[in-house]
Amino acid sequence: MTIGSVYFFLCAIACIAGALVTVVARNPIRGALGLLLTIVGIAGMYLKLHAQFLAAVQVIVYAGAVVILFVFVLMLLGADAMERPTGNRSPVARIAGGIGIAAIVLFTAYRAIQVYSRATNGHFPSLSEDFGSVKSVGKQLYSEALAPFELSTALLIVSVIGAIAVARTGHKRTALSPNNLTSAHRFFGGPVEPRDAAQPITKDSTL
């Protein structure tokens, strides 16, 4: 058991624990913290895999911004964000579904491992020393992946504007009431009220 495997083991435990906490936690704040733990665990993994730049980005962007944003929104929503005691759905169905999906995913992972162990015995080759460094990633980023890089900037700006537009409190939009929904009657000139009150609705009309 080398230092590396212990370190790997620790990070793995952190990630899985975090994920489980996020999923199981009653209180969403505890869920957010679970998420934080997972992200930090993943960052550790990156370091193990010589992806120093990514680890930094992960910690700064993910842990620094996204999780904080979650917590910020949680605080904004306050008590209502709490989980409502539902329970009308039978737990058996949900757990069975969950286990089913987990079984499928794990089975696929196991088969994939078998193949790869067979083919390339999954052993990590040796690396040049600046493999995961900022310079090499940056070089790649600015040479091959320049177009996606520029596009991602546009994406981020648009999402900012979108977020503001959606979450703006400003005017109070009327809720869409069911009766003025578009339907065939609207096409035929307003809600259908009996045109001739005197006319008894013929009961034998068809369709």
């Binding site: 590396g4 790997f8 899985i16 193990k48 895999l49 015995n121």
Partner: peptide, 12 residues
């Protein structure tokens, strides 16, 4: 050692 094969990462 544990962390030298891609299988562990795929499993995780």
């Amino acid at each position: 050692p544990l962390s030298y094969h891609v299988q562990e990462y795929v499993l995780l």
